[in-house]
Design a protein around this nucleic acid. Structure first.
Length: 440
RNA sequence: GGAAAGAUGCCAGAGUGGUCGAAUGGACCGCACUCGAAAUGCGGCAAGCGGGUCACACUGCUUCCAGGGUUCGAAUCCCUGUCUUUCCGCCA
């Protein structure tokens, strides 16, 4: 959530930012929260004065008792009792106000950075880079794939290839669990393991410490990274213990830094984690959920960084380069989008999406979002750092990105590397991890 | 699942009703000593929310797992919850 400090000190900038994010009634929401905050301050002031008085009286009662001035002590006692009643009411009022303010702040999204494009939907995103010459920078153009000599015309969708080569059994997953829980087998299963190992090895080379966190988290963690309370319906919930299955490793890994103060010398913190991710995906349907396009359970390697405000932009660039490097090493056709204000996630200040091209589906599949959350997430997490220079404490910047999510990468590898004889060539970078160079 | 013990600052660990935001030790920071270092000595060393200030200074309140309660006054007493550890049972 945004800090009250930012809202009050940079009022105009916040309003403008929210408008860019296409957040409705920005001014009303901001004005309302400012008014509440003022009320909160006034209440606290009154409460503090009350408590100060009763603290003093309580001390004096002790002294009076010692001196044997019983009558005076009794008068003071009565006065304290009165103050106490008043304090209790004020305290409750203050708590209620604080809760309301947090609630209001949680409904206000992060404000985008200046370099975030204007726009309201996916069409307004900027294509900033691609390894395809057909892909026009700054415009959503796929190019003519059927005539590209590097990607021959015989294109089966990955779900057919997976069936033909006995790599993934979607029906079996339905039997065991339900739709969206595929069973990988044989070389299909090994491809999963190969990708996980490849991605972790690359992250490790880039200096990320590997974390293997729990994939089930408590409520506090869900709140910390903002999945709760709003996106509760998107997570699987274990009601008996009140735990949630994680939708991304971001949740447990970022929550490592909840309520901590980090020495500046430790920054930037670089973590990576492979986990299974669980998403209910309520409301999805159609071609979006075909095959591997959208699953309820999938594997993902996430990279997370905690950094200073001065260095976070640099960190973000490094993360973008890392993810791009993975796609290059896998030899997949990709493009990088800088998301416009309206299409960005609620919490990000700036976000780039990476998409790979699915040759058979003739569509781009999102495989990574790499975001800088500025202090938005850190504020809710209370993730702060102590500056080396003046020892002051400030909010960190948090960043994360997928590096990478497996299913769509698998789809794209299958489709883009399929050969005329129905087999799939293994991307060179994966051969050491696969042990074979063709899937047949 | 049954039983017991415990939860205090960055860490260890005192503290059983006021003078306790909290002894002591360690870590850390500053200064002194030193050519430098070690050792030693002196000083500092929690966070949150307010007031105040250009910014400091200064200052009020809150916080000793969480939430309730007793009391004029709670780290300290009572209740509830959570978590941790140990033992027993079960078990990959």
């Amino acid at each position: 959530m945004l800090t009250m400090k930012l809202i009050t000190e940079q009022y105009d900038r916040v309003i403008a930012g929210l408008n860019k994010k296409h957040f409705n009634n920005a001014k009303e929401a901001i004005d309302a929260v400012i008014a509440k905050d003022q009320e909160r301050r006034a209440t606290q002031k009154e409460l503090d004065e009350n408590l100060a008085k009763s603290n003093q009286l309580a001390k004096s009662i002790g002294a009076l008792m010692k001196e044997g001035k019983k009558a005076e002590a009794e008068t003071a006692k009565a006065e304290v009792a009165e103050l106490k009643t008043a304090s209790k009411a004020l305290d409750e009022k203050k708590a209620a106000l604080e809760e309301e303010i947090v609630k209001m702040l949680c409904q206000i999204p992060n404000i985008p950075y200046d370099e975030v494009p204007e726009g309201s939907c996916a069409e307004d995103n900027w294509v900033v880079k691609s390894n395809l010459k057909e892909c026009v920078i700054g415009k959503d153009t796929v190019g003519n794939w059927d005539t590209n000599p590097d990607y021959p015309n015989a294109k089966l969708p990955h779900w057919e290839l997976a069936k033909n080569l006995n790599l993934i059994d979607f029906d079996l997953g339905v039997k065991i669990t339900g739709a969206g829980f595929p069973v990988y087998r044989g070389l299909g299963a090994r491809l999963q393991r190969a990708l996980i190992n490849f991605f972790l090895a690359e992250a490790s080379k880039a200096g990320y410490e590997e974390i293997m966190p729990p994939t089930v988290v408590n409520q506090a963690s869900g709140y910390g990274t903002g999945q709760l309370p709003d996106k509760e319906g998107q997570m699987y919930h274990c009601e008996v213990d009140d735990f949630y299955l994680i939708p991304t490793a971001e949740v447990p890994v970022t929550n490592i830094y909840r309520d901590v103060i980090i020495d500046e010398a430790q920054l930037p913190i670089k973590n990576c984690a492979y986990t299974q991710c669980f998403r209910r995906e309520a409301g999805s349907y159609g071609k979006d959920v075909r095959g591997l396009n959208r699953l309820h359970e999938f594997s993902k390697i996430e990279i997370v960084r905690i950094d200073t405000p001065e260095h976070s932009a640099e960190s973000h660039k490094e993360m973008l380069a890392h993810v791009e490097g993975l796609l290059q090493k896998l030899g997949l056709p990709y493009r990088i989008l800088r998301l416009c204000g309206g299409d960005q996630s609620f919490t990000s200040a700036i976000c780039y999406d990476f998409e790979v091209y699915s040759a058979a589906q003739k569509r781009w599949l999102e495989v990574s979002s790499v975001s800088n959350f500025d202090t938005y997430q850190a504020n809710r997490l209370k993730c702060r750092y102590r500056k080396s220079a003046d020892k002051k404490i400030e909010l960190c910047h948090t960043l994360n990105g997928s590096a990478l999510a497996l299913p769509r990468i698998v789809a794209s590898i299958m489709e883009d590397y399929q050969q005329a004889d129905g087999t799939i060539k293994v991307p060179e970078a994966l051969v050491p991890y696969m042990g074979v160079d063709v899937i047949k």
